[in-house]
């Protein structure tokens, strides 16, 4: 239990997707002009991470990792399919995003209207594939840890995009040098926010 809380808190604050690894920067910069759309995209990222990470974890553990196929046929104990992981992870993500989009459209039209336009964007969001690759690299031991990691990193991403959107809304009233407007100042503010987030570095449970 303690370990799960530790993974959650670390992935929200210390190993934040945006501030520590710059994952999902493209949509983070493009869709952070107003708080409302930013929170829509943030929710969609949490949602998709929570679905794709466990699926990719099971795929990695029972199909791709070295020797995993021995359960089906002992003669396959030396088969190592891990070089296929990129292609399968991205296929799972693209398929899951499509599936989630259809299910949400059918059963929760209100949610679909809020998330709808963002869902296809998310298939190519680096934060999602990055989540899967980090999960593979850090070798989490069971599915609860993976879920805690998914929820934590999704929430950290949500926190980052909503706060930058709030700051950018206020910024539109300030007098910034012309060449800095838009992209330049967004980078620098993200950097300053990252420095602020570094103060959480020592947190441990």
């Amino acid at each position: 239990m303690e370990q799960i809380i530790d993974i959650f808190v670390r992935s929200v604050f210390v190993e934040n997707m945006i501030f520590a690894y710059f994952l999902g920067m493209c949509s983070y910069l493009a869709v952070s002009k107003t708080v409302k759309t930013a929170s829509g995209l943030g929710l969609a990222v949490i949602f998709v991470l929570l679905i794709t990470l466990p699926v990719n974890y099971l795929l990695d553990r029972y199909v791709l990792s070295p020797g995993a196929l021995a359960q089906i046929n002992p003669a396959w104990a030396t088969v190592d399919l891990s070089f296929l992981s990129y292609i399968l992870f991205i296929a799972v993500i693209a398929a899951m995003v499509q599936l989630v989009e259809m299910v949400v459209e059918k059963y929760a039209p209100a949610l679909y209207n809020n998330l709808g336009i963002f869902l296809p964007l998310i298939a190519v969001n680096c934060a999602i594939l990055g989540g899967s690759l980090f999960m593979q690299e850090r070798a989490y031991q069971n599915i609860w840890q993976v879920l805690a990691f998914a929820l934590g990193s999704g929430f950290g991403w949500f926190l980052a995009i909503v706060s930058i959107a709030a700051i950018r809304e206020k910024l539109s009233y300030s007098n910034i040098p012309a060449p800095m407007r838009g992209l330049g100042i967004a980078f620098i503010i993200t950097g300053l926010m990252g420095i602020a987030f570094m103060s959480f570095m020592g947190i441990q449970f």
Binding site: G184, F187, L192, I195
Partner: peptide, 11 residues
């Protein structure tokens, strides 16, 4: 540290 990369890119 990571934040400095963003500030350098901003500049």
């Amino acid at each position: 540290l990571p934040p400095m990369a963003l500030i350098v890119v901003g500049l």
